[in-house]
Design a protein around this nucleic acid. Sequence first.
DNA 1: ACAGTGTGTAAGCGCTCACTTACATCCCCC
DNA 2: GGGGGATGTAAGTGAGCGCTTACACACTGT
Lengths: 237, 237
Amino acid sequence: MPPDDESSSAPPQGAREKLLSKVARCFMCEATPVGAREKLLEAAMRVFARDGLHKASTRAIAKEAGVSEVTLFRHFKNKDGLLAAVIGHAIHSHVGDALDEANWKGDLKENLLLFARTLYSNMVRDEDFIRTMIGEAKRHPEYADRVIADVVKPMRDGFIANLEVARGAGKVREGIDLGMAADVFTAMLLGGMLKNHPAGDGFNSQSCGWGYSPEKFVAMCVDIFVNGLAPPPAPQP
Amino acid sequence: MPPDDESSSAPPQGAREKLLSKVARCFMCEATPVGAREKLLEAAMRVFARDGLHKASTRAIAKEAGVSEVTLFRHFKNKDGLLAAVIGHAIHSHVGDALDEANWKGDLKENLLLFARTLYSNMVRDEDFIRTMIGEAKRHPEYADRVIADVVKPMRDGFIANLEVARGAGKVREGIDLGMAADVFTAMLLGGMLKNHPAGDGFNSQSCGWGYSPEKFVAMCVDIFVNGLAPPPAPQP
DNA sequence: ACAGTGTGTAAGCGCTCACTTACATCCCCC
DNA sequence: GGGGGATGTAAGTGAGCGCTTACACACTGT
């Protein structure tokens, strides 16, 4: 009887708890979710990532959440509504933490390293879900657009602003489009994760398919990027 | 009655044609495929890319191929066998053409630009299939391994060899791991395509989400990479 | 003329899927 | 203690899935 007409209308359970979950909760920040809705959202995130959007069944998601399938359909009017809610839920937990790692005043290379390490680690943490969404992006452009608008774009803008600071400090050549440079940098990290992690090892593991650690790969990205951006050292005397 | 016990055993049709198809054909080199097997392989490639491995149904593939579903199961013993054959078929068409674009003797930047443009264009051409395989890589590690062994690894090795030449010409700093550098470069291009092509425009299109053309993005990658690899210009006098 | 091979059509089997209905239970709040 | 909202159980519906069987037709080489 309560056909939840999208992802964000009336969830059941106590109003205090609902408000709390809106402000303070993000999927994995707390030990265990309390309401059925939270349990479903986090289970769905895992099952979608593990099985793919189409193969993931509502039965499997309900089972993973330890909740009956009927409850799933009572909270989300159909499988698509659940997916939309999951994406909204996941977006919350990804916005703008990587950028805060660095202060962007001191050494550019050092700050980039901090930023890249955090971003790369976050991507590895959600690797399965990211892979799934990359695979489905063309099939569900609405969700891709939402992810871009809500997490990719803000991070990009923040990153560009910080590169402006570096340019002010004389660390960046003339004629460099900072937006494009920012995209090149994040593309390195994204592409690197996708290429280097078929085995699913951790960030500091030794072998990741090509014989070096992710840590070293990230350092190499930063090294090449910083040197690639740097202006020629001094006018020839 | 002829349960084709993997991807490559006995296809039907005339032996001459079969041989021909093994040597000379690659999916899309000719205008139209002739036998049912070829039609099925190319249709399956499209449907798998369009719908995803799980959602793609044998009925839809047969229909797209203009062939009956029974014929599909007569050629490939099941859906998995068809997928394996499709991947083998696709691999054939991707091996080592991008590297041949440059001669790797002259200007490093120019050669990298030729290489990168070809590689990027090829990736854009098969973007949907690449996205699908990235999404399914963890679910089908066998196929991921095969693609890596048969197309990624050879290209990487060839690329590294060419970077050795550049190092011999004094274009590369000391202490740079060329394998890792090669990975950084291809990661830039892969990540860039995935990030820049939600709209699915062509290589030379103006807008690709961030306001610049893929052509410019590739040039930026090459620029940053070459500068990032270059040694400091001269010992300070 | 005949066998063999590749293909098509029609029908169906057993299964899983997304989603629904009806009814029972628990627990909090008045 | 009683009402209402959140949940569970049981059962089922119609559709699509992977895959099979049975049979008919067309072509090719001998």
